[in-house]
Simulated scan of single mutants.
Amino acid sequence: MSKKALADFDFEAGEVLLLDKPLTWTSFDVVRKVKNTLRPRKIGHAGTLDPLATGLLILCTGKKTKEIDQIQAQEKEYEGTFRLGQTTPSFDLETPVDAEQPYAHLTEAQIQAAVATFLGKIEQIPPVFSAVKVDGQRAYELARKGEQAEIKAKTVEIKVFELTRIVLPDIDFRVVCSKGTYIRSLARDLGVALGCGAHLTRLVRTRIGEYRLADAWTVAEVQALRPPRPEAADGAAPPRQRRERLKPARAGLDFYATQQADRAPAAGPDLPLHPEEATPSA
């Protein structure tokens, strides 16, 4: 069966739109960009992705927004990379390394044995740099102010946890898990189990239930659906109204932006990522 063309979607009536979220974009960035392009009356996403994760983000429009809870409840599949021997407060690249421990003594058998202990239902504590609410505030808001947040453990299920490559200090993995699982916390917990610490350096969501990243569209492809600007009486397009550019919400990625300063910018269109513009967001 051929893939349905974007031009054939009826976003106002209701569609489930699969998108490949760009690196450094928040999930809300994507929703905002699609909303400004397509102008549906109702739109929402079915499960967030961290700014430093890429991959499948599902948006629902119109009457399909009623299916958001159902989609969010389905199992997720991820691929990514953990780095052993180093820890960070955010469990990923959002914050700098705060401790280092030896890792070169670890054997593949030891690493595989530690991985096996996480299969099934486990108790997991979400990261302090997460959207979990603590006394009415988001945990990341407290963490970025240097305040302590006591986050309770919750039960999640790891259905598949396999290593696809081991080149120390990096290990590549594939995980299939239940709703609410934090892969960053899995990195932290694996590092604890191995006694060397670990953090997440790459994460791609490849599947939610039966929805797959291979069938997703890019944000640029959606933007191509933007209606043409109306012409003025003389046939020329009217000048764009100049608006003050707002600082984009970049979820506190100051450190990450600094580290990437010498590389090509990864931020999306009209949403440049600069250290001085990075501000906390959900």
Score class of each variant (00 low, 15 high):
227 P>Q: 11
227 P>F: 05
236 A>K: 15
234 D>K: 08
216 A>M: 09
217 W>Q: 00
202 R>K: 15
190 L>H: 01
197 G>M: 09
214 A>V: 11
213 L>Q: 10
216 A>K: 06
212 R>Y: 03
228 P>E: 10
193 A>W: 13
220 A>M: 10
207 R>C: 07
208 I>T: 12
207 R>P: 06
206 T>K: 00
215 D>S: 08
192 V>T: 14
197 G>S: 08
192 V>G: 12
195 G>L: 06
218 T>K: 05
237 A>L: 15
201 T>P: 01
209 G>V: 00
229 R>F: 12
209 G>F: 03
205 R>L: 06
229 R>A: 13
222 V>L: 06
211 Y>A: 14
212 R>P: 05
214 A>H: 00
234 D>W: 05
221 E>L: 03
229 R>Q: 14
206 T>G: 03
222 V>A: 04
215 D>Y: 13
218 T>S: 13
228 P>N: 02
217 W>K: 00
202 R>D: 14
205 R>S: 05
219 V>S: 02
234 D>N: 12
198 A>L: 06
232 A>K: 11
213 L>Y: 00
233 A>I: 12
229 R>C: 07
213 L>T: 11
192 V>L: 13
212 R>V: 10
190 L>K: 03
196 C>E: 07
220 A>H: 04
227 P>C: 10
204 V>N: 07
192 V>I: 14
196 C>S: 05
229 R>T: 13
209 G>S: 04
236 A>N: 15
199 H>T: 04
207 R>S: 12
206 T>N: 08
194 L>R: 05
214 A>P: 01
192 V>A: 14
196 C>Q: 02
214 A>W: 00
233 A>Q: 13
226 R>V: 02
208 I>K: 08
204 V>C: 09
196 C>K: 07
232 A>G: 12
217 W>S: 00
227 P>S: 06
211 Y>F: 15
196 C>H: 08
203 L>G: 07
224 A>L: 00
233 A>F: 00
197 G>H: 09
200 L>V: 11
205 R>K: 04
208 I>A: 07
202 R>W: 15
197 G>Q: 05
233 A>V: 12
235 G>K: 09
233 A>D: 15
231 E>C: 08
221 E>I: 05
220 A>G: 01
228 P>C: 04
206 T>Q: 04
207 R>H: 02
218 T>I: 03
210 E>V: 11
209 G>C: 01
226 R>I: 03
236 A>T: 15
197 G>E: 06
191 G>A: 09
206 T>M: 05
230 P>W: 01
191 G>D: 05
202 R>Y: 15
230 P>S: 10
201 T>Q: 04
197 G>V: 07
192 V>H: 10
218 T>A: 04
232 A>I: 03
209 G>A: 01
210 E>G: 14
237 A>G: 02
229 R>K: 15
207 R>L: 04
221 E>Y: 06
195 G>E: 00
196 C>G: 09
231 E>Q: 13
235 G>Y: 09
235 G>D: 11
210 E>P: 10
